[in-house]
Computed example of a mutant assay.
Amino acid sequence: MNTENFQSLLQRLTSLKKEMDQFRPLSKHQVQELEKDTRIEHVWSSNAIEGNRLDRFETASILNTGVTVHGASVKDILETLDLNQAYEYMMSLASKKEPLSQTTIRDLNRIVTLQTTQDKSEAGVYRAIEVWPNGFENHPYVNPIDIRPRMDQLIEWSSQNQSTLHPVVYAADLHLRFVSIHPFIDGNGRTARLLMNFALAQSGYPVINVQPNHEERYTYMDRLEQARSGNKQIFEELIAGYAEKELKRRIETLKLNEKNIREAQAEKGLTKRSITGYPRSNPKDPKIFRGR
């Protein structure tokens, strides 16, 4: 996608966001159900990208009912519980418009990895050894000695660019910059996707979830690596595509909600007077249990 087409995509996202904001909001109950579904989708997909073997329905069972899955590994279950807690923490911070800080990033990683890291003292602690993506030993992440200054730069970049970049570009770049540093021993991918959605939620955009099927996972990983090599727009385009799809889905949901409300109002046969005047059964009257 050339620069002109990418700018057109960003303009569509802005227009879709404005369109979404013009609709009547869903009821409190519907919002809660939608948010729960999005949270479960995030926990399942983000964990699955990293190799967690639980499927979406098993993840939902654990989070909704507390019922574990027969044959599931303890590690997979604990990763699910930890990421669910981290997601809720992330959304709480987003709702309060908390500025990005190293404390926030450390806390997110600490929650994500607390029950599954081999050494709990490593959760939220910057690594002291070199690491690299699988198959890219010749392209390691940031040298351990440079992690702290690079994280300082990340926070400074965030404070300078959050209000000037398009919200989706900012979210994608935050994800990319964090992953390129890879500051922790474990949980960097899950933490990066939380940070990306933290940025989106702060700007009023819906949470997006990268799907873990083979094709989309490969595309996601491949574009991240290309972006690390200098072509960051290719990753921004991927995230913008997910955002566009989710905005359109939300708008369709809001349209359906308004349609349902209009139909219910138009087809209402009872007036307030007829409702208040309607004879009500007395539960103590034995006649209500009899046939005619």
Results as ranks from 00 to 15, higher is better:
residue 193 R to L: 05
residue 2 N to W: 05
residue 181 I to A: 05
residue 197 N to I: 07
residue 30 Q to T: 09
residue 144 P to I: 15
residue 85 Q to L: 09
residue 235 F to L: 03
residue 8 S to C: 04
residue 79 E to Y: 03
residue 235 F to D: 00
residue 280 R to K: 15
residue 206 P to N: 04
residue 93 L to Y: 09
residue 31 V to F: 02
residue 155 I to Y: 02
residue 34 L to S: 06
residue 272 K to T: 15
residue 11 Q to D: 13
residue 255 K to M: 14
residue 49 I to Q: 00
residue 276 T to P: 00
residue 150 R to K: 15
residue 225 E to P: 00
residue 43 V to N: 03
residue 267 E to T: 15
residue 4 E to Q: 04
residue 135 G to T: 12
residue 11 Q to R: 14
residue 22 Q to P: 00
residue 133 P to L: 11
residue 255 K to W: 12
residue 51 G to C: 08
residue 287 K to R: 10
residue 284 K to S: 12
residue 97 K to Q: 09
residue 221 M to Q: 10
residue 183 P to W: 10
residue 244 E to Y: 00
residue 132 W to P: 06
residue 246 E to L: 07
residue 256 L to Y: 11
residue 6 F to G: 03
residue 197 N to G: 06
residue 122 E to S: 06
residue 107 D to Q: 09
residue 34 L to P: 01
residue 139 H to L: 15
residue 176 L to D: 03
residue 90 M to H: 05
residue 116 T to D: 10
residue 159 S to W: 15
residue 44 W to N: 07
residue 247 L to Y: 01
residue 126 Y to M: 10
residue 182 H to G: 08
residue 219 T to V: 13
residue 243 A to D: 02
residue 75 K to P: 10
residue 240 A to M: 05
residue 204 G to S: 05
residue 203 S to F: 09
residue 29 H to D: 11
residue 13 L to H: 02
residue 56 R to F: 07
residue 20 M to S: 14
residue 260 N to T: 10
residue 265 Q to G: 04
residue 67 V to Q: 10
residue 36 K to R: 08
residue 287 K to V: 13
residue 41 E to A: 01
residue 225 E to F: 07
residue 114 L to R: 15
residue 47 N to Q: 08
residue 184 F to S: 01
residue 94 A to W: 00
residue 141 Y to F: 15
residue 290 R to V: 15
residue 198 F to E: 05
residue 86 A to I: 11
residue 116 T to H: 12
residue 75 K to A: 12
residue 251 I to E: 07
residue 168 V to S: 01
residue 175 H to E: 04
residue 41 E to R: 01
residue 233 Q to N: 08
residue 159 S to V: 11
residue 196 M to T: 08
residue 207 V to R: 04
residue 18 K to M: 11
residue 204 G to E: 08
residue 278 Y to S: 13
residue 265 Q to V: 08
residue 247 L to A: 01
residue 46 S to R: 04
residue 131 V to D: 09
residue 279 P to R: 05
residue 210 V to F: 03
residue 181 I to V: 10
residue 204 G to D: 06
residue 279 P to E: 12
residue 146 D to I: 09
residue 241 G to L: 04
residue 220 Y to I: 11
residue 261 I to C: 01
residue 187 G to F: 10
residue 264 A to G: 03
residue 214 H to K: 15
residue 169 V to G: 02
residue 209 N to A: 05
residue 86 A to E: 07
residue 71 G to H: 06
residue 153 Q to I: 08
residue 23 F to W: 13
residue 218 Y to H: 13
residue 214 H to G: 03
residue 50 E to N: 05
residue 43 V to L: 02
residue 212 P to L: 04
residue 208 I to C: 01
residue 66 G to C: 10
residue 31 V to C: 06
residue 177 R to F: 01
residue 223 R to H: 12
residue 250 R to A: 11
residue 171 A to C: 07
residue 114 L to H: 08
residue 226 Q to M: 14
residue 145 I to M: 14
residue 227 A to T: 06
residue 184 F to I: 09
residue 111 I to V: 08
residue 10 L to N: 02
residue 38 T to H: 01
residue 12 R to G: 03
residue 176 L to H: 13
residue 38 T to F: 02
residue 196 M to K: 06
residue 249 R to T: 13
residue 41 E to V: 01
residue 201 A to M: 02
residue 240 A to D: 04
residue 156 E to G: 00
residue 252 E to I: 03
residue 233 Q to H: 04
residue 172 A to N: 07
